[in-house]
């Protein structure tokens, strides 16, 4: 009985989320891409007044760096002094 109820709740939950999962994930990814651009902007010659803070974030976001630059249509890392691939 409890298992059946849990299954129904799971189905309803997925029924709510599944159709728009991709739209929301895409929106989230777009926001994250913009954030990446802000964090790495100084390295590309774009002045960033908040670089004192964003510099600290660079090592944390390094993991996503490769995905980001390939998604942005750049096969290799766009930064001269920043090795990626």
């Amino acid at each position: 009985m409890w298992r059946a109820l849990k299954r129904w709740i799971y189905l309803a939950d997925e029924f709510y989320k599944a159709p728009y999962r991709s739209a929301i994930a895409r929106e989230k990814r777009d926001q994250e891409d913009l954030f990446m651009l802000l964090v790495f902007s100084e390295l590309m010659g774009v002045p960033n007044p908040a670089s004192y803070y964003t510099l600290e974030l660079q090592p944390i976001l390094l993991e996503n760096f490769h995905d980001w630059h390939t998604r942005m249509g750049m096969e290799k890392s766009p930064l001269d002094n920043f090795r990626c691939c």
Binding site: L11, E14, F15, A18, R21, S22, R26, R29
Partner: peptide
């Protein structure tokens, strides 16, 4: 994002 394996009942719904 777009490619996610989904339960068949959910996908049918």
């Amino acid at each position: 994002v777009d490619y996610v394996p989904t339960d068949r009942v959910v996908l049918w719904g």
